[in-house]
Design a protein around this nucleic acid. Sequence first.
DNA 1: CACGGAAGAGAGCACTGCTCTTGCTTTGCG
DNA 2: CGCAAAGCAAGAGCAGTGCTCTCTTCCGTG
Lengths: 244, 244
Amino acid sequence: MNAIRGARERARAEVTAAIKDEARRQLAEEGAARLSLRAVARELGMVSSALYRYFPSRDELLTALIIDAYDAIGSAAERALATVDRERPVDRWREVCRAARQWALARPHEYALIYGSPVPGYFAPEVTIAPASRVGLALVVVVRDARAAGLLREPADTAVPRAVAEDADRFTARLGLDLPAPVTAALVAAWAELFGLIGFEVFGQFNRLVEAREEFFDHAVTRLAEAVGLTDGDRKPTEPPPVL
Amino acid sequence: MNAIRGARERARAEVTAAIKDEARRQLAEEGAARLSLRAVARELGMVSSALYRYFPSRDELLTALIIDAYDAIGSAAERALATVDRERPVDRWREVCRAARQWALARPHEYALIYGSPVPGYFAPEVTIAPASRVGLALVVVVRDARAAGLLREPADTAVPRAVAEDADRFTARLGLDLPAPVTAALVAAWAELFGLIGFEVFGQFNRLVEAREEFFDHAVTRLAEAVGLTDGDRKPTEPPPVL
DNA sequence: CACGGAAGAGAGCACTGCTCTTGCTTTGCG
DNA sequence: CGCAAAGCAAGAGCAGTGCTCTCTTCCGTG
């Protein structure tokens, strides 16, 4: 009976996926603002009202695409995490950053959907916050593993304001980690800053300014890694990375 | 005759301004996606077609708002620049960053318009690039003045990749400046990273993560200033800023 | 003062998201 | 095996959108 009922649900899942695929296609061509339910339905050979069996509104469709996008960039970051030995934190950090950047450059509209302005009437329903943090968590893992391997420079000098330290400790506690507050603060900042770099490149703010995009990005995120306190031990400093 | 012809043009300018004001109002309430020409016209007591005497299309209206927004945040940054003595580069840097953040937090939708996803069918007409760089230029000024005052730590150690150095030198040359390439690279990166911090806060990515927003921001941008090489000389390090 | 050009009004086109009602098909239980 | 129920698509229709075109008004200008 599960298989039979499954038949219907599978059909439903297929149509749902087809709708999302087509929507994603139109998204890539026109951008979120120009995405039209009717056009999606038309392309799929159905009538617009039929679409509402699958998505209660256009905004819900967008939300679904948003979650998918967060998951996609998140898993790209996680895959990158796995490709580099945990004993080389700076390289690993850089590779995670690169994965995020590559994903963004390949799908600027999807990137805009999740890290640009919230398109419809402001939502960000709870469902999105888990997928939204996956890239950040990948960065956390890099730092956590680095610390375990003794490759995290402890910033004895720089203190952080108390309120910031409290936030930092609350954050690490929630994750069951134990990181110095200055490191956590730098990590969160670096996370946001990473998306500043990516966003400026994707949205064209670097036009006629930065030509050597990839080199610039690699260099900048390497410095971010250093700011967090990562080090590759006594290996030759950092700069020349394995160009992928 | 100029004054007489001015009569008509002044009327025109007034209506144009009224349209932009009303559009900005609706923008603040509903967001760019929901901004409607007809609604603007309705509110102003005219018919929608009349609006086209002033703006050839909805997108052109948005472009006008974009330019205004760039100018507004730019001049906020420049004003901040003037409030701090040029002999205290770190404070000055922080104040410029704060001004940008304050502006953004007060007008999230306008901020989204310029630093979020490009709403309509991708433009960024040449006209926008000058106003768009004003905040960045304010940061450049901080660094330039710091160097003049001998308050810029020269990063002897960190080298930058050649392509990055070339971009950096081209940039400084165009501005008639003379900065070490690593500084310039760090400066451009910090500029992008600043808007990563602001964007994440405005767009809610820091929700349930960073509570002490202001302290966190101040701390992060102070570290950015250090990364660029700014120092306040032998004054007490940096942290406690004049809370504004 | 007469008039030309700018400004507004209105109708209308093609489109949008969304709702509601009407039938058809599939499904799972008695 | 048959039938009620549930799932689904279709179509018409509503209110709204951006934008165009035509017609009229009217005011600043020479």
